[in-house]
Every structure is written in structure tokens, then in C-alpha cells.
Design a protein around this nucleic acid. Structure first.
Length: 477
RNA sequence: GGCGACGUAGCCAAGUGGCUAAGGCGGAGGUCUGCAAAACCUCUAUUCAUCGGUUCGAAUCCGAUCGUCGCCUCCA
């Protein structure tokens, strides 16, 4: 595919605070790492934003012809998992296993392509211990009573990513007083912590314990993607301390450059407050996908640039939903049109590229290559859809091709539903019987009874449309 | 207290120095229809939070003011 614009992609890099030209570490390859979930709970639509936006960016690179290796970790050992296990009176393994499954199901329901690798933290503990050992040996970390802390003042670039000056910072209130007493400086962060009796733990030079919060991402990203890889992504809240601490460990642990570009998405707000488990104002993906199509949810996020806050509202989502309904109408219309003209007079060779074909490709590239402006791409998508549907016959084929190409990374085109399930056949017959009955009433101009049937079906989310070719029905999306 | 982002129609949102300020949702009117639904056509910001400044020219640059949000603490 298009060699065309590979060299001109601009990515806003959080580290440098500017848009930088994307130059892959390995030619024609993109290696990306995203911080995945801690699996102790269901994900909400705030979590869905990075999943969707980085899925689109990943697929855009693939669309351009890059070989993409995409790694997203699963944090399956953590304080929150332990407390959730206690709450549900079960094991941490059980909790992690269950919520990993739920997470992957939710991703699928959002149309997110599975990552190339989905490593689990518990599979990399040995390597984490190695890294921590190295950091201790090099003098960047110190051990106190079974804890190992990273000594932030030893790394002179600490604070560069987040733009923080350690001296100006207020140190968190919630840090355990005991832990605080052990640290040399309040900003030092935990690399290894001793396990309490009954907690999952691993043997280490500092006694039985488990790794801190930030080491796993360093180890897994560099193991699977190399000491230097292209893009590291995550939510804006991860900049500090998580990503800052990753950089510190990676750079001090080896002379590796680590991630070349840092991308961060802005938040989803609900009533002007960020959506977060800690705020208690979450809307779960699990519930949302029952009512709304995944294409609508994706569209909602793609209509806004990823570095801008989104204020979530059902009103906006409803709007996306009805737009998806339109997409379906146009797209299946185009497919029917093509079938028809191919059956009649057209041969494949007679299909022509529309006059706007190359222009639109250029516009798409321009928008995407300028730090992934998906909002513009979506508007171009409308244009192509309308132009193809209403345009002349010879343009239909290439118009559709362009739509398919675009949708290979947007994922907003509703495809045909899955094959009919047996029980659906029964339902269909029932609906058809009702429609037949209603037709009788309509013939006799018994509008009251006819409308009653229509209302009944509407109650079941069945919308009737009286057309010249008889009554058609469709399911309310 | 330190650092950062944002404020464009009823709503979502693009545009960041120069053609009449994209696009979508919603709304209004029309065509069609038994009435609807769907579809199609038309309309829907003299103005970009406010006030100053720079400029031949600003939503776009600079300054001030007001407002909203985020990070500094587990969080996408």
C-alpha cells in the first residue's frame, strides 16, 4: 500500500512538548506499547478512549503498510487485586483471570483489534528482579527493611516528561506514613515491597515480596519490543508518576534510549468531572454496548481529537448512533448498486476512479499525519459515503473501495449482521405474520388496528416502513 | 502553592494569520405517505468567552480579565 506519506507523520511528543516527525527505529516497522489495565474491575468508557484511539492509530500504521508490533500489558498483581480478592473471598489469580476475560470481551465489543502481545506482569517477575538488582548495583536504588526504593535525586532528568520540579512538588498525602519514614526522600518510589503473610509473593535478594508499580512496563516493553522502540502511549494521568518512573528505571537500568515518542490521550469527563473509579462516576463499557453499537461509541471518540477532553453525554452518543444507522443505509445501498450494475452492463474494467479519489486520499493522509486528526477524517468519510451513494455508476466501485480502506482503521462502518440464528427465524416469521395482518387492516382502511400493530412492534424495537414494494421492517439500533 | 489544557451555533466539533467560519447531531419548512417511518430538497454562527494590543488583514499572534477542567496521590 501507499508508500506515499510514510515520512511525514507528525506526532505530538509529550516529552518534547511539540509535534515531531515520526521516524521509526526499524525501517517499515512500528513498535508500540500501551499501558494496559489492572484487572480487578470492569472497564468504563474513560478506559475505552485510549483503547479505541490507539487502536485506530495502530491500524492506520498498518494501512500505510507498516509492520506493527503492538504490546499491551495486563497487570495481574497489584494491591487493588489483592483487596478485591479479599472482598470477593477468592484468590488473586481468580480475580485476575476473570477480569482479564471481561476486559478482552469488552475490547472485542468495541471493535478493538487484539494486541500482538498481551504479556502478564506475573510472567516477568524474574526479569523485574534483575532490573531492580541492576538499579541497586548502579546506585540508583536502595533497600530498607525488605523495600527497595528508587532514589529519584540520582537521576538528573527526573521530572522531564511531566515538567515537574521535585522541589516544587507537594508530596502525596496518601503515601503510607511508615513507608514515608523509610524513604530517603518523599519522591522516591517503590521498586519492591515485602509481602504480608498470605499475599502472593516471589523470592528475591530482599526477601519475599512483589514488584512495585512501574517496573513491569519497563521490563515487558523492552523485552518484547527492544531497548529502543517507537511509541509509548497511555492516558494523560499516567504521565506522572507512572511514565516518569518508567523512564527513570529504563534509562538508569541500561543505556537504552527507551521509547522514542510519548503519546497521551486526554480524559473523558462526565458533567465536567473526569470519569474515574476514584470519582465514582463511571459508565461501564459493558452496559453501554448493550444499548449502543460499537461503531457509534468509536465514532463518538473519533469525532474529537485525542488530546482534547471529551464531555460524555448520551445526547451526543445518540447522535452518533443515528448517524451509524445512516451509514448502514448508505453502505448497504452502495453494495446493492454495485451488484446491480455489475449484473447489467458493467464490466470491472469500466469502473473509473472518481475525480475526487486521489484528492480525498491526500486529505486523509494530511489529516492523519498531522497528529492523527480523526475528526477531519470522519468528515471526509461522510463526503465519500454521500458522493459514492449519489454519484454516477462508474464511480461506485472505487468509491466503495475507498470507504473500505478508510474503515480498515476507523472501524465505524456497520457491517452485515451475523448469520441468522435459528430462534431468530421464529421471530422473523412472527413479525411477518404481524405485518401481513396489518396489511389486511390497511387494505380495509382500519387504521386504528393497523397502527396498534405498528406500535406493538415498535415496543419490541421493530420499526416498520411502508414503501412502494410493501412493508419493510428493521431493528431499531 | 507548582505545572498544564481548554472556552467556536441548542448540542458535539474542525479550523491556529488572508477565498462567503468544515462536518455531524438536533430543530424548522417542503416532497412522499391513510397517518407515520425512512429517504430526498431547502433553511439553521455577519461571528469564534470578554476587553485591549500587534498587523494591510486575527477565531487564529501578544497581554489582561472571567470561566471550565486536569496533573502534582491508585486512576486511561
Amino acid at each position: 500500500m501507499p508508500e506515499r506519506n510514510k515520512k511525514t507523520i507528525l506526532i505530538y511528543d509529550t516529552l518534547r512538548r511539540e509535534k515531531r516527525e515520526f521516524k521509526p527505529v526499524h525501517p517499515n516497522e512500528v513498535r508500540m506499547y500501551t499501558c494496559g489495565p489492572t484487572v480487578y474491575n470492569y472497564i468504563h468508557i474513560g478506559n475505552a478512549r485510549p483503547l479505541i484511539i490507539f487502536d485506530v492509530i495502530r491500524r492506520y500504521f498498518e494501512y500505510l503498510g507498516y509492520k506493527v508490533t503492538y504490546v499491551q500489558n495486563i497487570t495481574d498483581i497489584d494491591d487493588k487485586i489483592i483487596s478485591q480478592a479479599i472482598e470477593e473471598s477468592t484468590t488473586t489469580e481468580e480475580i485476575a483471570k476473570r477480569y482479564t476475560k471481561y476486559f478482552q470481551e469488552d475490547c472485542e465489543k468495541l471493535g478493538v483489534k487484539p494486541p500482538t502481545h498481551a504479556p502478564k506482569a506475573t510472567g516477568y517477575v524474574e526479569k523485574m528482579i534483575d532490573l531492580i538488582k541492576t538499579l541497586v548495583d548502579k546506585g540508583y536504588a536502595y533497600e530498607v527493611e525488605g523495600n527497595v526504593f528508587f532514589e529519584v535525586s540520582e537521576y538528573h532528568e527526573y521530572g522531564r516528561l511531566s515538567g515537574k520540579d521535585l522541589k516544587q512538588m507537594e508530596i502525596g498525602e496518601r503515601v503510607d506514613d511508615v513507608i514515608r519514614g523509610l524513604k530517603k526522600a518523599p519522591g522516591d518510589f517503590t521498586l519492591w515491597k515485602p509481602a504480608k503473610p498470605g499475599e502472593p509473593s516471589w523470592e528475591s535478594p530482599w526477601g519475599r515480596g512483589r514488584p512495585g508499580w512501574h517496573t513491569e512496563c519497563v521490563v515487558m516493553s523492552t523485552t518484547l519490543l527492544g531497548k529502543e522502540f517507537d511509541i509509548h502511549t497511555g492516558g494523560i494521568d499516567l504521565i506522572f508518576p507512572h511514565h516518569e518512573n518508567e523512564i527513570a528505571q529504563a534509562r538508569c537500568g541500561s543505556d537504552a534510549p527507551f521509547a522514542k515518542y510519548w503519546m497521551h490521550n486526554e480524559f473523558v469527563n462526565l458533567k465536567d468531572k473526569k470519569m474515574a473509579k476514584s470519582e465514582g462516576n463511571v459508565i461501564l463499557v459493558r452496559n453501554l454496548v448493550k444499548e449502543y453499537r460499537k461503531e457509534a461509541i468509536r465514532l463518538l471518540f473519533l469525532q474529537t481529537h485525542y488530546r482534547k477532553q471529551i464531555s460524555f453525554s448520551y445526547e451526543a452518543l445518540e447522535g452518533c448512533q443515528s448517524l451509524i444507522e445512516k451509514f448502514k443505509y448508505y453502505y448497504s445501498g452502495i453494495k446493492k448498486q454495485i451488484k446491480l450494475i455489475q449484473k447489467n452492463k458493467f464490466k470491472k474494467s469500466e469502473h473509473k476512479k472518481p475525480w475526487w479519489y486521489n484528492r480525498k486520499i491526500r486529505e486523509i493522509d494530511k489529516a492523519m499525519n498531522k497528529d492523527f486528526n480523526t475528526a477531519i477524517v470522519v468528515s471526509i468519510f461522510f463526503y465519500i459515503l454521500y458522493k459514492t451513494y449519489f454519484g454516477p455508476e462508474e464511480f461506485k466501485f472505487y468509491g466503495k473501495k475507498l470507504l473500505d480502506d478508510l474503515d480498515s482503521f476507523l472501524g465505524i462502518l456497520p457491517r452485515d449482521e451475523k448469520k441468522t440464528m435459528p430462534f431468530e427465524k421464529i421471530v422473523k416469521n412472527k413479525i411477518n405474520r404481524k405485518i401481513k395482518l396489518r396489511d389486511e387492516y390497511r387494505k380495509n382502511k382500519d387504521w386504528e388496528k393497523a397502527d396498534k400493530i405498528r406500535d406493538e412492534l415498535l415496543q419490541m424495537d421493530i420499526i416498520l416502513e411502508d414503501t412502494k414494494n410493501g412493508t419493510k421492517w428493521r431493528i431499531k439500533l
